[in-house]
């Protein structure tokens, strides 16, 4: 039992590091057409953790990625709107993975990305009192659909190709 827990925590730490690294690398490139828009490749590791290890570990990976990624990339103000969006997006994806059990990973990822984009945009407007920025929301949602699809397909391939006996609890 204890060994299982240690194994899960160790894998979560590795996935957190990979997610943070992907997040920081992505921040080095210019945004996709719209300020703040990214592909969100780091979310592959979060969705993978939710499915393969457990939702609470997925939340851990997401929190570590946002906190450490923001500190290391020198954009601390980003935590204010990234963290609530990440929490809600993870929550929605967890519900779709564990409760509905009817949807594919790409669809779940697309829905999570759209929720993330909408919450991030709304919280940004709330914090900065700049409701005019909502006019970027339709474009950000379109980018979220494409990026969510890519992240979902990547997670699907990762789950299909990786030797999961080394990761899951059996």
């Amino acid at each position: 039992m204890r060994n299982k827990f240690i194994k899960k925590i160790t894998i979560t730490a590795v996935l957190s590091a990979l997610s943070t690294l992907a997040f920081m690398l992505e921040n080095l490139f210019p945004p996709l057409f719209i300020p703040g828009a990214r592909m969100g490749i780091s979310n592959v590791f979060i969705l993978f953790t939710i499915v393969a290890i457990g939702y609470e570990y997925g939340f851990m990976v997401m929190t570590v990625k946002i906190l450490l990624g923001s500190v290391f990339s020198g954009n601390l103000s980003g935590v204010l709107y990234s963290l609530p969006a990440g929490l809600l997006s993870c929550g929605v994806q967890t519900l779709l993975v564990y409760f509905t059990k009817n949807f594919s990973l790409p669809a779940i990822s697309v829905f999570g990305a759209v929720i993330n984009s909408a919450i991030q945009n709304t919280v940004f407007c709330l914090i900065t009192n700049t409701w005019e920025y909502l006019s970027y929301l339709p474009y950000l949602t379109l980018i979220a659909i494409v990026s969510g699809l890519i992240v979902g397909l990547a997670t699907y391939l990762l789950i299909k190709k990786l030797p999961l006996k080394t990761i899951t609890d059996k």
């Binding site: 499915v51 564990y98 059990k101 699907y156 609890d169």
Partner: peptide, 10 residues
């Protein structure tokens, strides 16, 4: 939760 059953399903 994070089990092989769920992963197998996907």
């Amino acid at each position: 939760k994070g089990s092989t059953e769920l992963v197998s399903k996907f």
